[in-house]
Nucleic acid binder design. Structure first.
Lengths: 354, 354
DNA sequence: CCTCGCTATTACATCGATGTAATGTGAGAC
DNA sequence: GTCTCACATTACATCGATGTAATAGCGAGG
């Protein structure tokens, strides 16, 4: 309201409003504590030393005014927002949800906020995200891409730090992954152990192959080869969407035209649960008539009927490693590509117990 | 590099860096298009009219420079970030995940980003979130509280717009909810229809009651009363954590000391799936020996063995309504509390089919 | 008593976008 | 040919926090 004299403008209204409610700023805190705004800032950041008494006065003033820093302003000034993005195909998928859970949890422990985006397996959407990322509202991105070779995700110099989850190849970004090929191979071997030879695989994509599907199919085939079992194309059950609904329906159709395999390896637990439902509806007993296995070790799979044999791995480790790679790259963008592999194990449960 | 003359300082270095990569600003775009920064801003916002040719030049310049607006700066200036917060107890819970999925989806359609937080059912954490919300990085908050009467969530004047999900009472915030009481009552009635009288309820909390647990327990008891069935305390199976693990274990312990009820109403689908697993392990047939029902209509429940009878409701409608309430309140903070009720229906599936 | 040197504090500019108020430009009317 | 009016465009200040460089304070050493 009051204009100063000369070049200096002395404003008396410094607090800002949020929906009509006043909010204190550093200036307000400074005035109340009888110091300069920069000193308040110094107290908050702790880099520049502040004397004991002054620090106390400032802290008290902050408390009295219920001061909350404006992160937009800080983000503008610092060039960093303290927010990371997490992009997943579909949050409603139990596997994605568990990953998201761990990432949000680990991020929070380290003081980061997480902004979630769904790509819906759409390369276009994945591209949008990179752009969004560049708008400085997020400092980095953890991306779980689906489509192989999606040129959309060109992890280049003009983009913020990115960590990919999963087995995208041909990308230069940092990456955390589980060796799906080896895991699928081992699971197939485990299913074959009790002498089963007619082992079907559920989840082969008909059209555009996802990187994950290719890996798991490859591992499955490698195991058969290792066992000397000839590859039987009629045991590859395709399933366009990796959902229980799609899996249940695909298996239902399949069983109408094919004999029952001795074992069924589903490429995700979600699909396995759809499959279990179909088998149960047809009166097929698991594991007596057919052994079933999944992949991901999702919580619900453990309580499926029967409990689902699956490929298990430490999802929290994935979150921890992804965040480590991301923060390290944010600190130093120059170092080369880093790839972290997460161990897996075969969890044999009731659905394949012979 | 070149200093201007007089009071005006003409800077030639206007683009900013992000990890060593130059990023164009409005100034750069303006210079390239031969207009002022404000005109560029006008082109983007579309409020102030800009002549055709000028607009074209600006748009071309933006494209050439690969311009991306800095949202921190915009947020600082406008006081709004375009981000809303979503706080849920636990993302890994299929129900929460599905809700999150729909909210993220609907929010994206309306141009909002979503920042996710987990409260872990911790009132303290819920409080932190409100503070965080005030830091202007989020314009509003959708909160799914768990604990009843958590004084932490004091939806007051100094806080950003909040919409609560669920049946928190005694709060003045806008709210979207499903009538758990009525739904639980109807489900209990449905389970009793074929003449079942010994109906157990799984999910009663031992210690601190959640609002939801109270509602569902109440509905269950109301149904029994309506049916003239005396309330039998030994049919109330408590379960401290609403997870399949906890439910499976609680039921296992329960069955060791009690006869098998005729029906089991679990307060969530997740718990019901844990229960199904326990029943199967004990050789109890569902629905022949006992009918089982859940609540939430989670995807995996539909493919449980047997398919789970449940209380269903439109989760996308919850998301849509929550966002509508939130955006309306952000536009006008003065109007009174609004409460939206979402319809439910009883989905009878194989787990209770007699 | 004065200066040196160290530390705590301050004034000022800055990050990028945008509202405000003022300026510039053109067509149309007299 | 001049004046008005409407509209496109510009200069400047601002949002809030913080780095930079300069200042103030203060004890120790000469």
């Amino acid at each position: 309201m009051a204009a100063g004299l000369g070049g200096n403008i002395v404003s008396t209204t410094t607090s800002s409003k949020l929906g009509g409610v006043v909010r204190a700023t550093v200036k307000d805190v400074a005035r109340r504590a009888g110091v300069s705004p920069k000193t308040v800032s110094n107290v908050m950041n702790g880099i520049v030393p502040v004397s004991g008494p002054t620090r106390l006065r400032v802290e008290q003033a902050m408390a009295e005014l219920d001061y909350v820093p404006n992160l937009s302003a800080r983000g503008l000034r610092n060039g960093r927002s303290g927010v990371i993005g997490l992009a997943l195909p579909d949050l409603a998928t139990p596997f994605s949800a568990e990953i998201a859970h761990h990432i949000v949890e680990v991020a929070h422990e380290q003081g980061w906020s997480v902004q979630i985006e769904e790509t819906g397996s759409d390369p276009q959407r994945e591209h949008e995200l990179m752009t969004r990322a560049r708008s400085n509202l997020i400092d980095g991105l953890i991306l779980n891409p689906v489509v192989l070779k999606e040129s959309a995700v060109q992890v280049g110099v003009a983009l913020p730090p990115v960590v990919l989850l999963g087995e995208v190849t041909q990308q230069l970004a940092d990456r955390v992954f589980v060796d799906s090929f080896a895991a699928a191979r081992d699971m197939t071997l485990a299913l074959a152990k009790p002498g089963r030879r007619r082992i079907a695989a559920l989840g082969v994509n008909r059209g555009r192959q996802s990187a994950t599907a290719i890996q798991r199919t490859g591992g499955y085939e490698a195991a058969l080869q290792q066992l000397g079992i000839p590859l039987d194309g009629s045991l590859l059950i395709s399933c366009d969407s990796w959902t229980p609904a799609s899996a249940a329906e695909s298996l239902r159709e399949y069983l109408e035209g094919h004999p029952l395999p001795e074992a069924l390896f589903c490429f995700t637990d979600s699909m396995a649960m759809g499959a279990l439902n179909t088998l149960w509806k047809r009166g097929v007993r698991v594991p007596d008539d057919i052994a079933v296995a999944g992949f991901d070790d999702v919580v619900d799979g453990r309580y499926a009927v029967p409990s689902l044999t699956t490929v298990s791995f430490d999802k929290r480790a994935i979150a921890t490693e992804a965040l480590r790679l991301l923060t390290e790259r944010m600190a130093d963008r120059s170092h080369g590509q880093r790839i972290v592999e997460i161990d897996y194990s075969i969890e044999e449960r009731d659905s394949s117990r012979s």
